[in-house]
């Protein structure tokens, strides 16, 4: 469990939170958000909007970038009555999730909400993501092989 000083508005925390909630399955985020109960209301600064970003790859994985193809993205922005602005960006077409992400980003700028969000939303989602990765990696690991080349003995 991460403990916050009185107020953590650092980009590092926002960056981590925004990434965790954007990559979470939309329905999980919705369920966990409900566990927070009543939260300060907000107004929409930018209604959820679907658009595209161009994904970049790199030549041979590490060289000059090139445009590899686009992906759909949904973004939204909200403002709390107290003025904090929350930004949400999620891959895919997920208007509700983008709004939730923006709302969580805004709430996270209120010191009293940081710990509850960390405990009830961010930490569980991080663990679930880790478990998904671990399962996929474990299934892959079961297919790991050793190839042996058959060397011919001299003179036989």
């Amino acid at each position: 469990m991460l403990l916050f000083p009185s107020s953590d508005t650092s980009p590092a925390r926002r960056q981590r939170w925004l990434s965790v909630v954007a990559k979470a399955p939309a329905h999980r985020l919705q369920i966990l958000r409900q566990s927070l109960g009543d939260t300060p209301s907000y107004t929409m600064l930018r209604r959820p909007e679907i658009g595209l970003i161009m994904l970049q790859g790199r030549i041979s994985g590490s060289g000059a970038p090139f445009a590899a193809g686009e992906m759909t993205v949904t973004r939204a922005a909200v403002r709390l009555a107290s003025g904090q602005i929350g930004i949400g960006y999620v891959g895919g077409r997920h208007p509700l999730q983008a709004e939730l992400v923006a709302a969580i980003d805004a709430l996270g700028q209120l010191p009293e909400w940081q710990q509850p969000i960390e405990d009830q939303i961010i930490a569980p989602l991080e663990q679930e993501a880790k478990a998904r990765h671990r399962l996929r990696a474990a299934m892959a690991a079961a297919t790991k092989v050793e190839f042996f080349t058959v060397a011919r003995e001299a003179g036989t």
Binding site: G51, I53, M54, L55, G61, E70, M71, A140
Partner: peptide, 23 residues
């Protein structure tokens, strides 16, 4: 369909060395 959507920008180059590889 993609021609109907606005462009928000471009991603950072994806880093395939960070891939959770299945193969």
């Amino acid at each position: 369909y993609r021609t109907t959507l606005p462009r928000f920008g471009h991603s950072e180059p994806i880093d395939t060395s960070r891939m959770s590889a299945e193969r």
